[in-house]
Nucleic acid binder design. Structure first.
Lengths: 140, 140
DNA sequence: GCACATTACTTGCAAAAAGCAAGTTAAAAA
DNA sequence: TTTTTAACTTGCTTTTTGCAAGTAATGTGC
């Protein structure tokens, strides 16, 4: 349970408001999706994602996510140019949020990736457990 | 399943991206929370909410939510000054998204409204069913 | 060892969105 | 019929977003 740092001040104590203040923009959750579902770990991979985030915005969002304890960063041991971004436990805990958002849009908007949606519909809990298991391993 | 109107163009077909494009700002989900959990139905009630949204932003978000079929608006029969905003089925279907966002923040950030959080933890499905039932009735 | 490539950014500037304060309109209440 | 109330709109400033170009550090091929 993190405390607020100096500059931060929440508009209210409502937990939904906290989520919205941390994740309520057009990019943060997409970065988390790329890590969680596609296994992305580097700046370059995020840049290559289909939605085409700008380089400065990506750098800013990664900083924010790290500041909020959702991801960690460390230099790649075998290639010093690369930074490796990883989800923390707090980040992995966003899996249910992502899942519900995917299911909502899939049910009400015209979207693609029917395979993923079917998987989520058929065994939501199993998929989330799978994501968690994969990441627990990766973080060691 | 709605189709995109003229001006709209999605950055990608990913369902998460659709959700983020529709709801990924600092206010839309709070408005939905106020309707869903607090039973708010009028402009004035939304304005009075603790986070203090600006009047022009509120008007804009309500327009967007209506354009996306998440809420409906109609003039109050017994008081012609009032507009009554209601959640559609699509709007009610956001209950699981809201719930997971509340639980995530409650688990990882310093927040208030412990009563709601406990309720969600103890019987998530029951609470969502309850919200749905209350609204189905209200919409008639 | 040196040129070239790669990775992860930063910087500067223009455009879009958010936020504040004040004003407007239509309907209801006194 | 004057005053209130509800739901906005308008004008302006500040903040955020987004694009294009530039930079620093590390790695690779010869």
């Amino acid at each position: 349970m993190r405390n607020l740092t100096a500059g931060e001040k929440r508009r209210s104590g409502c937990p939904l408001n906290a989520s919205v203040e941390i994740l309520g923009d057009r990019w943060s959750l997409l970065i988390i999706r790329d890590m969680m579902l596609r296994g992305f770990r580097t700046y370059k991979e995020f840049l290559g994602s289909y939605e085409k985030i700008a380089t400065n915005i990506l750098a800013d969002r990664l900083r924010n996510l790290e500041a909020h304890g959702i991801i960690t960063v460390e230099r790649d041991a075998s290639d010093g140019r690369k930074q490796i971004y990883k989800l923390t436990e707090k980040g992995i805990d966003l899996a249910p949020v992502l899942t519900e958002m995917v299911l909502w849009a899939a049910g009400h908007e015209k979207t693609e990736n029917e395979a993923l949606v079917q998987l989520m519909k058929k065994d939501k809990a199993g998929l989330i457990a799978e994501i968690r298991k994969r990441w627990e391993k990766a973080r060691k």
